[in-house]
Design a protein around this nucleic acid. Structure first.
Length: 586
RNA sequence: GCAGCCAUAGUCUAACGGAUAGAACACAGGACUCCGACUCCUGCAAUGUGGGUUCGAUUCCCGCUGGCUGCACCA
């Protein structure tokens, strides 16, 4: 089935044509004056200039044609040239009925060509996830779900920071603590232990110590740099330690991302790109786009249309090493080779925009990514109530797990305060609801904007929040459950609306296919959020003035139930695109 | 210094160039006491500033003010 706006658009477009005007003027939109109409068409005003006719004349002519359509109960041409439309109840009821019978809820979920790689982790091994990783994970995961829902194949890659000086630092710190380990014995030729010589908490403690030490102790820093080079050259013992570090870290990261309901398809890291670097750099030199400058190898990326100067992009440091750009470019080489995707979506803090512009340009210029779409989504900062980047009370960077815990505790207290739930269920529910609070609080804002983390507001079940949506879903589920218990069946058949509230709910529900599609096209989870909020509001209004269980007209009641089922499916699909789910009770 | 991004009720946030700028929180009233209480209704209240383009500008262009950010070998 086709989207409602599209279906209606076809009618208005052919009406424009029939009245002697260009069909493309017939585009219609949901009304922004719901007091006047449900849908509107502004094409008459756009066409006035073209045809040298007053807009109202065009509108009148088109309206005359539209009167004949059985899809509208009211067609009005209004000054200066708006065409105001209301749907006929029969058509609306029929459309909603079809929507509810469609397994895809009216969405085009057919499989699309190509694969999109989403790079949205950015976690570093040996360092705990902190709130800097939160937005990337939440937004990236949602975008992945949204794309999948619309039939796009995706590959989500965590793209670990698993290479570079931090590794040398850890290795050297470990050596100073446990010099007798076989990894540090160059004469050792046997099998290294399977067990890592540290736990995740030790690892998390080792790194900051080593990092601090390197700032004071020049000798230590040098040894770490040397160790890094040795590791990169394949030092046997160091490689073994490095693998332990990865294993221990990844296990922990998976757990933490899991708590956020974030799952990656690939756990690749910067290290995976290393083998591609020499050939890649050489190819760019050979083709003439890369040249030497101050000892480094650079590529010019300035374009004529630039309003500012772009310095050349360094693809090999003067010491021969790799930098951020090198590593990201080599990663693209690998991804092209292994997956040949049709598009890339990178999520990172918007402050990194320049970097992405640079390396995208090099990737194009060097032909590393000849055609695939390269997109960067820069997100804003999550701030504290003071408007500055969110910190712990002591001023440090907040670990992600603490943030989650804190949100869950807040939720748990609320549940206990008004609930009859036992300890176990309360705890479980608090976890589910807390996640919705956190994610919805983030996703309901446009990604590029900063937002304030306000735990009280996010966990409130009033207002535009995750818990409010969940509450609404729970309420729908409860009615459906009750209905089934009472009548022992859930047969239903949706009919034309019999009240304004019902009608409004139906109109909200009709917009789902379009919303889902646009959210994917714009990579914009916040559009799903505002849509769901609108549906929840419509439902609650309907709920308030319609007592569903006490309805005496069985046909009407069945129609209500059908509508509830549809609302529930749409809302559950919707929140799953945001990356959370609804509990059975709250 | 150069460049980019942002600016909407007290707070937070939305709006392909379209009508009276839409919500939320808070605040002031009121309804329901129910199918699950956190629901519903009414009210108050906003486009930083000065120009321009347009029949029409929160939206596009230019200036100003204010805030944030980035400017080659760190990721």
């Amino acid at each position: 089935m086709s989207e409602l706006l599209k279906t209606l658009g076809e009618v208005t477009e052919s009406a424009f044509e029939e009245a002697g005007f260009d069909a493309s003027l017939g585009r219609i939109t949901v009304s922004n004056r719901p007091d006047l109409c449900e849908f509107q068409c502004n094409g008459a005003m756009a066409g006035a200039k073209k045809y040298h006719v007053a807009p109202i004349e065009i509108a009148n002519k088109v309206a005359d044609v539209l009167q004949k359509s059985d899809k509208f109960s009211s067609v009005e041409a209004v000054m200066p040239g708006f065409i105001n439309l209301k749907l006929s109840s029969e058509f609306l009821g029929q459309y909603v009925k079809e929507l509810s019978e469609d397994e895809n809820l009216g969405c085009d979920r057919s499989e699309k060509e190509g694969t999109i790689i989403i790079d949205y982790g950015g976690a570093n091994v040996a360092k705990p996830l902190h709130i800097g990783h939160l937005r990337s994970a939440i937004i990236g995961e949602s975008i992945k779900h949204i794309l999948n829902y619309n039939g796009y194949k995706t590959i989500g890659d965590v793209h670990l920071g698993d290479w570079g000086l931090q590794m040398g630092l850890i290795i050297m710190e470990l050596k100073s603590r446990q010099p007798d380990l076989p990894y540090f014995d160059d004469t050792f030729t046997g099998e290294y232990p399977k067990e890592a010589p540290f736990t995740i908490s030790e690892l998390e403690e080792i790194y900051p110590k080593a990092s601090a030490k390197s700032k004071e102790d020049e000798e230590f820093k040098k040894s770490a740099q040397l160790a890094t080079v040795e590791l990169q050259n394949g030092h046997r013992g160091y490689t073994a330690i490095w693998k332990h570090i990865i294993d221990v870290s990844v296990t922990d990261l998976k757990k933490n991302y899991g708590n956020l309901a974030v799952e990656f398809d690939l756990w690749k890291g910067e290290s995976d790109a290393q083998p591609y670097i020499p050939d890649m750099v050489q190819a760019m030199i050979d083709s003439g786009i890369a040249y030497e400058s101050d000892g480094a190898i650079v590529v010019d990326i300035a374009e004529e249309t630039d309003s500012k100067e772009f310095p050349p992009c360094i693809i090999r440091k003067s010491d021969g090493g790799a930098n951020y750009e090198t590593s990201d470019l080599a990663t693209l080489v690998e991804r092209e080779k292994l997956y040949s995707p049709s598009g890339y979506v990178y999520l990172a803090d918007k402050r990194q925009e320049l970097h992405y512009t640079q390396f995208f340009r090099v990737a194009r210029k060097a032909g590393i990514v000849p055609t695939a779409d390269l997109k960067f989504i820069g997100f804003g900062t999550m701030n504290g109530k003071d408007g500055k980047p969110f910190k712990t009370r002591s001023g440090g960077v907040m670990r992600l797990e603490y943030l989650l815990d804190e949100t869950k505790q807040t939720m748990l207290e609320k549940i206990k305060a008004n609930g009859t739930m036992d300890e176990n269920e309360a705890d479980k529910t608090a976890g589910i609801v807390a996640l919705s609070a956190l994610k919805y609080g983030d996703l309901s804002n446009q990604a590029s904007k900063d937002y304030v983390f306000d735990i009280e507001r996010f966990t409130s079940s009033e207002g535009n929040t995750g818990p409010y949506l969940l509450y609404t879903i729970v309420r729908i589920k409860s009615i459906l459950r009750k209905y089934e218990e009472t009548f022992g069946k859930t047969d239903c058949e949706i009919m034309a609306p019999s009240s304004d509230g019902q009608r409004a709910l139906m109109l909200s529900l009709c917009a789902w296919p379009e919303t889902a599609r646009v959210a994917a096209e714009d990579l914009a989870p916040h559009k799903i959020c505002s849509y769901l909020y609108d549906v929840a509001n419509s439902f609650n209004r309907f709920y308030h003035d319609t007592n569903i269980m006490k309805e005496e007209d069985a046909k009407k009641q069945q129609s209500y139930i059908g509508l509830l089922k549809l609302a529930r499916r749409i809302m559950e699909d919707g929140i799953s695109l945001l990356g959370f789910e609804a509990p059975e009770r709250m």
